[in-house]
Amino acid sequence: MIEFFLGHYAYWFVLILLVIGLYGMIIKHNLVKKVIGLSIFQVAIILFFIASSTKWEATVPVLANHHEKIQAAAYINPLPHTLMLTAIVVGVATSGVSFALLILTYRRYKTLNETELLKRMSEEDAE
């Protein structure tokens, strides 16, 4: 039981972080807060991949000594690190795009509140 807990508690923290991000996206009405929730969601997924790449008593995936026979158990899994490395930078770029869209929305409707925004959009359609 305690071993099961020690093997899984990191996943549960990541899942809580995931739900916090989803909370920001669903419950909050401010669009900037929604984007922040999106970023938290993304970070949670990145942390999940990094957490799943661990091996006990293993070190970073940089080869220490290439003359000996390479033990696969001595290095943690390099594949999730590679995938998440690119995901982080792409995440920064896409959040830049979302902030650009928010700036455009604010310039046109002068608000970032979701309900207010929908109201103003329907008013504009009615005109």
């Binding site: 920064v92 770029a93 830049g96 902030f99 650009a100 700036i103």
Partner: peptide, 8 residues
């Protein structure tokens, strides 16, 4: 990244 910062 610098150009996104400038644009924003």
């Amino acid at each position: 990244l610098v150009s996104i910062f400038d644009d924003l």
